[in-house]
Computed example of a mutant assay.
Amino acid sequence: MSGSDAPTPVDQPIADFSQCHAGILRKLDGLAELPALLQPAARAREVAEQSVEFFREAIFEHHLDEERELFPAVIASSEAGAERDRAQALVRRLTDEHRTLETLWKRLEGGLKKVAKGQSFELDTAGLEALVAQYRAHARFEETEFLPMAQAILSRNGDHMAALGLALHMRHTPMPVAGYV
């Protein structure tokens, strides 16, 4: 040995192998976590993909159904005066909320599409939480305030309820292509 009595790497090749194994084992411990991490990642992709499809196909269509069919039917069937004023005020509020929710969605949609494809992306979690909270509040308000009023107004005349049902049915029934029945 030299004068310092400290072993040099040349003197301890077995210790080097041991240290190398320690590093390899730490990396393998991380690799062993991968299956547990893949399941939530796969679920995140699935939820993002389903949400993108659902928002475009169901929620936007739902808003259109309300704005083109339900809201006008309720206003037209309401009694002039306080009832119609209230109906119009609620319709304005709900329509404004639709636009706000759709704007929030449009800000999130691109990021959700990336998540759905498994691409790395920093999702706007605050925006996502705001969308969910605001939509829950919107639905709760509509369920407790507007829909009971709509039911009462449209139920006064069976023809009005039937007309709404028919209009909604027609909006969602594919039209046959000429020459094909």
Rank of each mutant, 00 (worst) to 15 (best):
M1L: 12
R26F: 02
H138E: 02
P72Y: 14
A137R: 08
Q119T: 00
W105L: 07
T144K: 10
E109S: 09
G3T: 14
L108N: 02
E97F: 05
R156L: 08
V181D: 14
A126T: 07
F71T: 04
E69V: 15
D5W: 05
A152H: 14
G23N: 12
A178N: 10
H62Q: 08
R93I: 04
P7S: 09
S78N: 08
E83P: 08
E33R: 15
P13M: 06
R26D: 13
E69F: 12
E122Y: 01
R43S: 10
V74T: 11
A15M: 12
L64P: 00
V132H: 08
F55C: 00
S78R: 08
A6W: 07
A163Y: 00
F60E: 15
T173M: 14
F71R: 02
T173L: 14
P35T: 08
A150I: 08
A82K: 10
P7N: 06
V47K: 09
V74W: 04
E49F: 00
A87Y: 05
I153E: 02
K27M: 15
A82Q: 10
L94G: 07
K114I: 01
R93P: 02
L94R: 06
F141M: 04
M170N: 13
E79K: 10
V177M: 13
E67G: 02
G127P: 01
H169Y: 11
T144M: 06
Y180S: 13
Q39K: 11
A139F: 05
G110F: 04
L104K: 08
R140P: 00
S4I: 10
E143V: 01
E67Y: 00
L166R: 08
L164N: 03
F54I: 02
T100W: 06
H138N: 02
S51D: 05
A32W: 11
C20D: 09
I75A: 15
V181Y: 10
F17C: 11
R92M: 06
Q151R: 15
P174M: 12
L147R: 11
A32F: 12
F146V: 03
Q39N: 04
E66M: 02
R99I: 04
L154E: 01
L38C: 09
D124F: 02
V52Y: 03
Q134P: 00
E53H: 07
V47F: 13
S18V: 14
R68D: 13
P40H: 03
R92Q: 12
E66V: 04
S2H: 13
I153A: 05
E61T: 12
F71A: 07
A44G: 06
L37V: 06
L101P: 12
E66S: 04
L108C: 03
L168D: 01
M161K: 06
P148M: 04
F141E: 06
K113R: 15
Q19I: 06
P35N: 09
A58V: 15
V74I: 15
M161E: 05
W105Y: 10
G81L: 02
M170A: 14
A44M: 12
S78P: 07
V132D: 08
Y135P: 00
I75S: 15
I75Y: 00
M1R: 13
L168Y: 02
F141L: 10
V52H: 03
P148C: 04
S51A: 11
A178I: 10
V132S: 11
T144F: 01
A48H: 07
G30H: 15
R136G: 07
A48D: 07
L128G: 11
Y135R: 12
L123T: 05
A58Y: 08
T100Y: 09
C20P: 00
A167T: 05
Y180T: 13
G23M: 09
A22Q: 12
